[in-house]
Deep mutational scan, measured.
Amino acid sequence: ETFPLDVLVNTAAEDLPRGVDPSRKENFLSDEDFKAVFGMTRSAFANLPLWKQQNLKKEKGLF
């Protein structure tokens, strides 16, 4: 299941849709939104070091 970017960005855990893991908001973006937000594919993002993934998520309001 995916959700629009505005539902996930800068949203407190208690305000997220049911079933969304607040530590993994990026997994609930569509592939198109994911690429638009991070400028890379999911596989490229997954290959980044964890610290870099976290920094990007913070920068984009998805942490």
Rank of each mutant, 00 (worst) to 15 (best):
K25L: 15
D33P: 00
R42P: 07
L50F: 12
S23C: 15
L56W: 04
K58F: 10
R42M: 06
L16W: 05
D33A: 05
V7T: 09
G19T: 08
A44I: 11
K60Y: 09
N47M: 11
M40H: 02
F3E: 03
E32L: 10
D33W: 03
N10D: 08
T11Q: 07
G19C: 13
D31F: 05
G39W: 04
N27T: 10
D33M: 04
D6C: 11
G19A: 08
L48V: 02
L5I: 12
A13E: 15
L50R: 09
F38P: 00
P17F: 02
R18D: 15
F63V: 09
A36N: 12
G39V: 04
D15S: 08
V7E: 06
E26L: 01
S43K: 12
G19F: 09
N27H: 12
K60A: 15
P22M: 04
A13L: 12
V20L: 06
P49K: 02
L29H: 01
D15V: 01
K52P: 00
K52F: 14
F34W: 03
R18K: 15
W51Q: 10
A12P: 13
L48A: 01
D33S: 05
K60D: 01
N27C: 13
A13V: 14
A46N: 12
R18E: 15
R18C: 15
Q54K: 14
A46C: 08
Q53A: 05
V37I: 09
N47S: 14
K52T: 13
L50K: 11
S30F: 01
F45D: 00
E1N: 14
L5P: 07
L50T: 13
K60H: 14
K52C: 12
V9H: 06
V9M: 11
K52Q: 14
P17A: 01
L48D: 00
P4E: 05
L8C: 05
P4W: 04
W51H: 10
A46S: 13
M40N: 00
L29Y: 02
K35I: 14
W51G: 08
A46H: 12
L8E: 02
A13H: 11
S23G: 12
V9L: 10
G19Q: 10
P22H: 05
A36P: 00
D31S: 06
G61T: 01
Q53K: 08
E26Q: 04
D6Q: 10
L5A: 04
F34R: 00
E59G: 07
P22G: 06
D6T: 10
D6A: 13
E1R: 10
T11H: 08
L50Q: 09
Q54S: 11
L62W: 05
F45K: 00
V9W: 07
P17Q: 01
E1I: 15
R42C: 04
L48Y: 05
P22D: 06
T2K: 11
L8I: 05
N47E: 13
D15H: 08
T41K: 07
T11C: 11
T11V: 14
K58S: 11
L48R: 00
N10M: 07
K57F: 04
E1T: 13
N27F: 08
D15F: 06
L50S: 11
G39K: 13
K58Q: 11
K35C: 14
E1Q: 15
K35R: 13
P49V: 02
V20F: 05
N47W: 10
L8F: 03
F28A: 09
F3V: 03
W51E: 11
T41D: 14
E32M: 10
P4T: 09
T41C: 09
L16P: 13
T41I: 10
P4K: 05
D6V: 08
Q54I: 15
A46V: 13
S23I: 07
F3L: 11
Q53S: 03
D31P: 08
K35N: 14
N47V: 11
K60E: 03
D33K: 03
N55A: 14
L29D: 01
P49F: 00
L16K: 03
K52W: 11
A46W: 13
D15L: 13
D21S: 02
P49R: 01
A12V: 09
D31V: 08
D6N: 12
G19P: 09
D6W: 15
A13N: 15
R24A: 09
D15G: 06
F34G: 00
R42Y: 07
L5N: 03
V20P: 07
E32R: 09
L50N: 10
L5H: 05
G19L: 06
G19N: 08
G19W: 09
K25E: 04
T11W: 09
E1V: 15
K58M: 12
K57N: 02
V9K: 11
K60W: 06
Q54N: 14
K57C: 07
S23L: 15
S30N: 11
L56M: 12
V9D: 03
V20I: 08
T2H: 09
E32V: 12
L16Y: 15
M40Y: 05
G61R: 05
V9R: 07
K57P: 00
T41Q: 08
N55F: 10
P17C: 10
E14A: 11
V7I: 11
S30M: 05
E1C: 15
R24E: 05
N10H: 10
G19S: 09
K57E: 05
P17K: 01
W51C: 14
P49T: 07
D31K: 07
K52E: 14
K25I: 15
Q54P: 00
R24K: 14
A12S: 13
Q53C: 01
G19D: 08
A13D: 15
V20Y: 05
K25H: 02
Q53G: 00
D15P: 02
K35Q: 15
S23T: 14
R42W: 04
E32W: 10
R42L: 07
V7W: 14
L5Y: 14
P22E: 08
P17H: 03
S43Y: 12
D21H: 06
M40Q: 04
T11D: 07
V20R: 03
G19R: 05
F38Y: 02
K58A: 12
A44E: 14
T11M: 10
G39Q: 14
L50C: 12
P17Y: 03
D31T: 09
L8G: 03
P49Q: 03
E26Y: 03
E59A: 12
R42S: 04
L50V: 12
F38T: 01
Q53E: 00
E1D: 11
R24Y: 11
F34N: 00
S43F: 13
V7H: 07
K60C: 10
P49H: 04
S43I: 13
F28R: 06
N27K: 13
L16C: 09
L56V: 07
T2S: 09
F28V: 04
V7K: 11
W51I: 12
E14H: 09
K35P: 02
F38W: 01
L8K: 03
D6Y: 14
P22A: 10
F3A: 03
S23D: 14
